[in-house]
């Protein structure tokens, strides 16, 4: 992404940010509250229109493309405040996310020519739930899940998309430490297996520095640092931003 910018009234939430994520790379995005991290995700994922700047995905200019188009092109994102589809079951939430479903067209839907594909989708969804430890809740309404379980559900939906790039907004917030560890491992596994790249917002700076290839830091809408974890640890401007001295 190049020169991305977004202002809400007078607040320059994201101010001319450049950021690259290479294929299979894992990039952390940290910064104090209100730094503009989530807004940056919204711009990249097409959930909000950018005031300026451009986004390229796998070499293609995708600036201004709608969110669903980006998702179909291999971009998955999760939300900071997990958004479960409450009056649908957990299994339905996850099945929904499978790409290329034939039964989402009106005629095939009525002719029930989708049942074969649906069996595969459901099998994959159950596998995903099993991995996340949600299999017992498959038939419960998603609205009955706890906050941490909803975060896992978000991750499960994103995994179903088989994306090339995942934007994870605080995937570990509110998740118990054992599970958080498992998620980190799974993320590593997805990277190894599918070559998916990650851009991860996370306030647990230590986890980020430990697991990411590169870490970008934002404050007041600007990117103030972008370097290897070891260099970030000793970066003065980052420390200042976190201590509020900037």
């Amino acid at each position: 992404m190049r020169g991305l910018a977004k202002a809400f009234g007078g607040v320059r939430a994201v101010d001319a940010v450049d950021l690259d994520v290479g294929p299979g790379e894992m990039v952390g995005l940290i910064g104090p509250n209100g730094a503009g991290k989530t807004t940056l995700f919204d711009l990249v994922a097409g959930a909000l229109p950018a005031d300026a700047g451009s986004v390229r995905l796998r070499g293609e200019d995708v600036t201004g493309k709608p969110a669903h188009d980006l998702a179909q092109r291999g971009l998955a994102r999760t939300f900071q405040i997990a958004r479960a589809l409450a009056r649908m079951t957990v299994l339905e939430n996850v099945c929904l996310a499978a790409p290329g479903q034939h039964g989402e067209r009106v005629l095939p839907a009525m002719l029930r020519t989708w049942t074969g594909q649906e069996r595969e989708v459901e099998a994959r969804a159950r596998e995903t739930l099993e991995f996340l430890g949600l299999q017992e809740h498959a038939d419960a309404y998603a609205g009955s899940l706890s906050g941490g379980q909803r975060k896992l559900l978000e991750l499960g939906r994103a995994m179903m998309l088989k994306p090339r790039l995942m934007l994870l907004d605080e995937p570990l917030a509110g998740v118990n430490p054992v599970l958080a560890q498992r998620i980190l491992e799974r993320i590593a596994a997805i990277r190894a297996l599918q070559g998916c790249a990650f851009l991860v917002i996370e306030h647990d700076v230590e986890s980020v520095l430990r697991t990411c290839d590169r870490v970008a830091v934002m404050a007041h809408g600007k990117k103030i640092a972008d370097a290897a974890p070891d260099d970030i640890r000793v970066d003065r401007s980052v420390l200042e931003a976190y201590l509020g001295a900037a």
Partner: peptide, 9 residues
């Protein structure tokens, strides 16, 4: 918004 983010037009 979730449906959009999951690739549904």
């Amino acid at each position: 918004g979730v449906a959009e983010a999951l690739g549904k037009d």
